[in-house]
Design a protein around this nucleic acid. Structure first.
Length: 609
RNA sequence: GGAUUGGUAGUUCAGUUGGUUAGAAUGCCGGCCUGUCACGCCGGAGGUCGCGAGUUCGAGUCUCGUCCAGUCCGCCA
């Protein structure tokens, strides 16, 4: 009866099933019953006169015993090896006293094997599937289907399923419709490089895979669906990181007739319910922090609030000193001089400090000045530093007072362009927080709000911080008058220093949209060419609307404590955006290329060299 | 595009100053074993030291190039 099939995982047995139970659900409540189960041979222990097989399926592990009395089954069990696929029928019985295994949910019982059928043999696994052996990631990825059999991966992907199911239920209950949008589309105005697909029927033209469903979800608002969501694949052809894959999954959300506070409240509640139900974690009220404050206090637009340290401005104390390394940035309107007090950091060795100096140089910092606080009560005498003589004793003591240092602290200094100081000292703050175990809590979520509309390009022009459809928090006239300082109605949800999601209210008004394009210096031709359809749509009664998107992979990664999203994606790509299992991307035939009107340059290059 | 770490048995790793036949653990194969549960004991097989040049009497080891994988910077609203 098909309508009952959703119950199959709760031991619902239907007539033609190959098993009566999953391995992992056979417990003492089934004692003295005959069961049939299927699975993989996890381990075989042969004691000559008795053979133990641990059989594994999705739900867990169960021990089966084969006795020489049951000759046929015993002989078959004698021949099976790791990862053979077997079907076993046997009697559930309580284990003898002293032979129970508390580490197994099925550890109080065992199966006395009566019949065993080898459903499939297996070659020797390329790597052990237990929890004890570390295996290189490239080997795991090459045999990913084996890797996914491992308990850890089974748990990660099941957890992912639980979360995405709760997302669907939550959004459904709140009136959001699951609507699909195209994968074959055209290049969207986001900043990333597009994945391209040549068109056979329009030779010379290309589809682009969506970097996100951004424009389509806005159009669905124009269409009056009011509330939309989608768990959507997104594609960006940029270099990878531990938390970045070329294809990734977003929980994409958009709603009409809604305020910034409302959309944040609805989605915040969703995240909180997920943490509560899946992990029994109460995230509490999620604080809001303006972008400017985040940059000032933490040097980052996605601060990790598990760490209590903050950047403290000291430029005002150092403007008039001789020492140009500090005085220069202190007087530069685009410069910044910041100090970071590290509790207990005085124990750092010269070698440690050198390593941190090298670390901040990655971010463009030219050096890393420091002061160790040994005995504060002795004044400057109690401080240890190569730079006190340059900034002066009086200034040093003022800085120490401002920072509220205590004995045993170390203070690091950054002085440069504000961008470099923020990135370098911001990154140092996190590294020190982790290295010195200064995390004060396990979960630290926050909303970062009041983002600027634009940021300055190196060349001098302006570019959108989110995307060009983000609504500003002011009128078109005000925006035009002060574009560099205008704020947007955009918001990011940050968890433990990781950007989980972000969104904005969108522009639904033509005059405003025109102003933004003008400021961004996007010509009318370019507007029409790239997203004329959206501008058209805005003419036909676009409702006020806005939304946001969460990175599902990152959310799961944080929740399961993985350090890469590859651990929560069934078939991820390697750092060079390839797949070592399928060998994708692969070559195609000349015929296929001709059909889509594409001629390769690489072959010519190969010949020339 | 750049910085950096790694690539040696199926797997995880060791390999000294460049020097005899490249080792260990585990897995695999064979044998023994009736209460193990990462079973145990005995024996055996298993290597393109990523690939290609070079230096050298001699290279796993040194040099250069290259490929692959990881982390990061740039990049990714």
């Amino acid at each position: 009866m098909l309508f009952q099939i959703h119950n199959y995982f709760k031991s619902y047995i239907w007539e033609f099933a190959m098993r009566s139970h999953y391995c992992g659900e056979i417990t003492e409540t089934l004692a003295d019953q005959t069961v049939t189960f299927c699975g993989w041979v996890h381990r075989r222990r042969d004691h000559g006169g008795v053979i133990f097989l641990d059989v594994r399926d999705r739900e867990g592990l169960v021990q089966t015993v084969f006795d020489p009395d049951t000759v046929e089954a015993f002989n078959t069990a004698n021949g099976v090896r790791s990862e053979y696929v077997v079907q076993i029928t046997g009697l559930v019985r309580l284990r003898p006293q002293g032979a129970t295994n508390d580490n197994m949910t099925t550890g109080k019982i065992e199966i006395l094997g009566k019949e065993i059928t080898v459903l499939n043999k297996a070659a020797t696994p390329p790597f052990p599937l237990d929890d004890y052996s570390p295996v290189g990631e490239d080997v795991r990825l090459k045999y990913r289907y084996m890797d996914l059999r491992r308990d850890e991966m089974q748990r990660n992907l099941r957890f992912r399923h639980k979360v995405s199911t709760q997302v669907r239920n939550y959004l459904d209950q709140n009136g959001f419709l699951d609507l699909e949008t195209p994968i074959l589309t055209r290049a969207t105005p986001e900043g990333a490089r597009d994945y391209l697909v040549p068109s056979r029927t329009h030779q010379g033209s290309f589809f682009a895979l969506p970097q996100s469903p951004q424009l389509f979800k806005q159009l669905l608002m124009v269409s009056g669906f009011d509330r939309y969501y989608q768990i959507a694949k997104c594609f960006r052809d940029e270099d990878l990181r531990a938390d970045r894959q070329p294809e990734f999954t977003q929980i994409d959300i958009e709603a009409s007739f809604i305020t910034e506070e409302q959309i944040m409240s609805i989605t915040e509640n969703m995240i909180k319910e997920i943490f509560k139900d899946q992990m029994n974690v109460d995230l509490g009220e999620i604080p809001h922090m303006p972008y400017a404050e985040a940059m000032n206090r933490f040097g980052s637009d996605k601060p990790d609030l598990r760490i209590d340290m903050e950047l403290v401005d000291i430029a005002d104390l150092l403007q008039d000193i001789e020492f140009k390394v500090f005085a220069g940035p202190a007087k530069d309107p685009k410069g910044r001089v910041a100090a970071l007090k590290v509790p207990g950091g005085a124990k750092l060795s010269r070698k440690d400090i050198d390593a941190y100096t090298k670390y901040v140089s990655i971010y463009g910092a030219k050096g890393l000045a420091w002061i160790k606080v040994n005995e504060l009560e002795k004044g400057v005498e109690g401080l240890q530093s190569p730079i006190i003589k340059f900034i002066g004793e009086e200034n040093t003591l003022k800085i120490m007072e401002r920072l509220g240092v205590e004995n045993g602290d170390i203070v690091f200094f950054g002085a440069d362009k504000a961008k470099i100081v923020n990135e370098a000292i911001g990154a140092l703050r996190i590294k020190l927080g982790i290295d010195l175990e200064l995390l004060t809590k396990e979960w630290a979520p926050l909303w970062v709000v009041d983002f600027p509309m634009f940021e300055e390009l190196d060349g001098g022009g302006l570019t959108a911080i989110h995307h060009p459809f983000t609504a500003p928090a002011c009128s078109p006239e005000e925006l035009k008058a002060n574009p560099a300082t205008a704020l947007s109605q955009a918001y990011d949800l940050v968890l433990n220093g990781c950007e989980l999601g972000g969104g904005s209210l969108r522009i639904h008004d033509q005059a405003m949209q025109k102003t933004v394009f003008e400021i961004l210096n996007i010509s009318e031709e370019e507007q029409q060419e790239k997203f004329g359809f959206l501008l058209d749509a805005l003419q036909f009664g676009a409702p006020p609307h806005g939304g946001l998107a969460f990175g599902l992979d990152r959310l799961i990664m944080l929740m399961v404590g993985a350090d890469s999203i590859r651990e929560v994606i069934a078939f991820p790509k390697t750092q060079s955006a390839g797949c070592v299992m399928t060998d994708a991307p692969g070559l195609v035939t000349t015929k296929q290329l001709r059909e889509v009107g594409v001629q390769l340059r690489v072959q010519e290059k190969d010949k020339a060299e």
